[in-house]
């Protein structure tokens, strides 16, 4: 039973991402800033650090699966989110051994992961000719606001998620 909590949470945030732009005030959306909700990615960072053990790769598998779902449901170009999410989560998981896990280090890791993920997404879209935007503009208009907005999301859900994730991790450990 404990095992299906994480996919369920991730799935509900997948659905919520679709209405995210409606929830935000229109004055924020209508402006030239592009804020992209990477909620699933932020949750996966927490899963990678607080739920995954050293030898398991649950977070990376979830990253690939839910990345593919985002591709199918929201963009129609398969594989882009799937591989960038999986790759970025893999890097974050490797990095997380360096520092102790507290809120500050999590923010650091997740922003590094997010920068890698979003730049790779951008790069792929650029290569296939979907986006024509200068990199300088991209950094100011999209990357910075996106990271800030997603870190706010991370800080809000951090207390709930960490308690839940460590609980579930221990419970599964006892079951074994």
């Amino acid at each position: 039973m404990t095992r299906i909590y994480i996919p369920l949470i991730l799935f509900s945030f997948l659905v919520l991402e679709g209405v995210a732009l409606e929830l935000l005030p229109h004055s924020l959306v209508n402006q030239k800033l592009d804020i992209v909700p990477h909620w699933i990615f932020m949750l996966l960072v927490l899963v990678a650090i607080f739920y995954d053990r050293e030898h398991t790769h649950i977070s990376i598998i979830y990253a690939a699966v839910f990345g593919l779902l985002i591709d199918v449901v929201y963009t129609g170009i398969l594989g882009v989110y799937m591989f960038t999410y999986a790759g970025a989560i893999f890097i974050v998981k490797g990095l997380s051994r360096i520092l102790q896990s507290n809120l500050l280090s999590i923010i650091l890791f997740s922003s590094i992961g997010l920068i890698i993920a979003d730049i790779s997404i951008q790069l792929i879209y650029f290569v296939i000719g979907l986006v024509h935007i200068e990199w300088k503009v991209y950094f100011m208009v999209r990357l910075l606001p996106t990271i800030l907005a997603n870190i706010i999301f991370l800080i809000i859900c951090y207390p709930f998620m960490v308690r839940g994730l460590t609980n579930w991790k221990n419970r599964i450990h006892e079951d074994l």
């Binding site: 679709g18 963009t75 986006v131």
Partner: peptide, 14 residues
Amino acid sequence: VIARSPEKWIEQVT
């Protein structure tokens, strides 16, 4: 309309 793509480059709704 039930959803909008969070990816801004891809202007599509469901």
